[in-house]
C-alpha cells in the first residue's frame, strides 16, 4: 500500500514537471529538442557515474545538465556552421550521444548500476525499493525512494523558475525578435529552458525511461495548447491533463496488470485524441448553428 503511494506520488511529480516544461517546448516549436535531450542525458548520467563513482543526486543532475546543454549547443552549431537542417542536426547529435551512452553501459556493465532496458523503458514499479538512507547505512532513517526525492527537487526548481520568470519566458516564447528588441537575453533563456528540460528528463529516467518521457513532455502540453487562451491557462490545463493521465493510467495498469509508465503514456494519448474529437464535434455543431441562423434570417 505504501508502495502504491510512493509510485503515484513519483509518477504525478514526473508527469506534472514534464507537462510544465513541455508547454514552453511546444510554444517554441522545440518538441524535438525535448526528445533529443531526454535521450542524450543518458550519456551524462553514465559519464557522471564513471567519473565520480557516485550516484548522489547533485552528481546525476549536474551530469545531465552539462550533456543536455552540449546537445542543444552542438545541434545549433551543426545547423549554423555545417549548414544542415535544424531537425537533421538535432537527430544526429542526440542519437550519437545516446549510442555512446549505450556503449559505455555495455563496456562497464559491472560497474554501472543501469541496464539498457531500464534506461529505455524505466520501471516505476521498482521505484519504492531504491531508497535513500539518511545518516549511517546501518542505523540511518529510510526517507523514501531516491526517484521521488530527485523529481521533488526538480519539480520545485521548475515551478520556482516559472513563477519568477513568467513574463520573460512568455515574451521569449511568443516572439524572440521582439524579446530581443526589449533587451531580453534570448540566448540565455533558451539555454535556461534547456537546463530545465535536462533536469526534468534525468529525474524522470528511473520512473519512465528515455522514450516515454517524451510522451509526457509533449502530449499533455499539446492537449492544453488546443484549449488554452492564455499561457497561465495552458500551464494549468497541462497539469490537469498530466495528473489525469497518471491516475487513469495507474488504474488501467492495475486492471490489466501491465506496465505503469506505458499505461500513463497511452492514457495521455487517448486524452489528447478525445480533446481533438471534442473540438471537432464542437466546430461542426457551431457550423450547423451558424447555417441555421442564416436560414432563419433568410
Amino acid at each position: 500500500m505504501i508502495n502504491d503511494v510512493w509510485i503515484l506520488a513519483t509518477a504525478s511529480l514526473v508527469a506534472i514537471s514534464c507537462a510544465l516544461v513541455g508547454v514552453f517546448l511546444i510554444l517554441r516549436r522545440q518538441a524535438l529538442m525535448g526528445d533529443a535531450i531526454s535521450h542524450s542525458v543518458l550519456l551524462g548520467i553514465v559519464l557522471a557515474f564513471l567519473i565520480s563513482e557516485s550516484r548522489s543526486l547533485p552528481v546525476m543532475l549536474a551530469g545531465a545538465v552539462i550533456i543536455g546543454l552540449i546537445t542543444a549547443w552542438l545541434s545549433d552549431t551543426l545547423h549554423k556552421v555545417g549548414k544542415l537542417q535544424s531537425d537533421a542536426s538535432i537527430g544526429i547529435v542526440f542519437t550519437l550521444f545516446f549510442a555512446i551512452g549505450v556503449i559505455l553501459i555495455s563496456l562497464y556493465a559491472g560497474q554501472v548500476d543501469l541496464d539498457q532496458e531500464c534506461v529505455l523503458y524505466g520501471e516505476i514499479a521498482f521505484v519504492p525499493f531504491d531508497t535513500i538512507i539518511w545518516g549511517s547505512s546501518e542505523q540511518g532513517l529510510d526517507i523514501g525512494p531516491r526517484a521521488f526525492w530527485m523529481i521533488s527537487v526538480v519539480f520545485v526548481i521548475v515551478l520556482a523558475s516559472i513563477l519568477v520568470a513568467f513574463n520573460r519566458l512568455q515574451t521569449v516564447a511568443f516572439h524572440p525578435s521582439l524579446a530581443l528588441s526589449l533587451g531580453i537575453n534570448v540566448v540565455f533563456w533558451h539555454y535556461f529552458l534547456m537546463t530545465l528540460v535536462s533536469l526534468t528528463t534525468v529525474a524522470s529516467f528511473d520512473a519512465v525511461g528515455a522514450i516515454l518521457v517524451v510522451a509526457l513532455l509533449v502530449i499533455p502540453a499539446s492537449s492544453a495548447y488546443l484549449l488554452a487562451s492564455t499561457l497561465k491557462n495552458m500551464l494549468w490545463l497541462a497539469v490537469i491533463y498530466a495528473q489525469s493521465a497518471v491516475l487513469i493510467g495507474y488504474a488501467l495498469a492495475y486492471a490489466l496488470d501491465s506496465a505503469i509508465s506505458a499505461s500513463i503514456a497511452v492514457t495521455s494519448g487517448v486524452l489528447l485524441g478525445l480533446t481533438i474529437l471534442g473540438l471537432q464535434v464542437h466546430k461542426i455543431r457551431l457550423r450547423r448553428q451558424g447555417k441555421a441562423t442564416l436560414l432563419e434570417k433568410a
Binding site: 520573460r168 526589449l182 487562451s229 491557462n233
Partner: peptide
C-alpha cells in the same frame, strides 16, 4: 499563441521591469 490582447500590450512594459 495562447495570449490575450492586454498581455501583449503589457509586454511593452516588461523591458522596464
Amino acid at each position: 499563441f495562447p495570449i490575450k490582447v492586454m498581455d501583449v500590450v503589457l509586454m511593452g512594459r516588461h523591458g522596464q521591469l
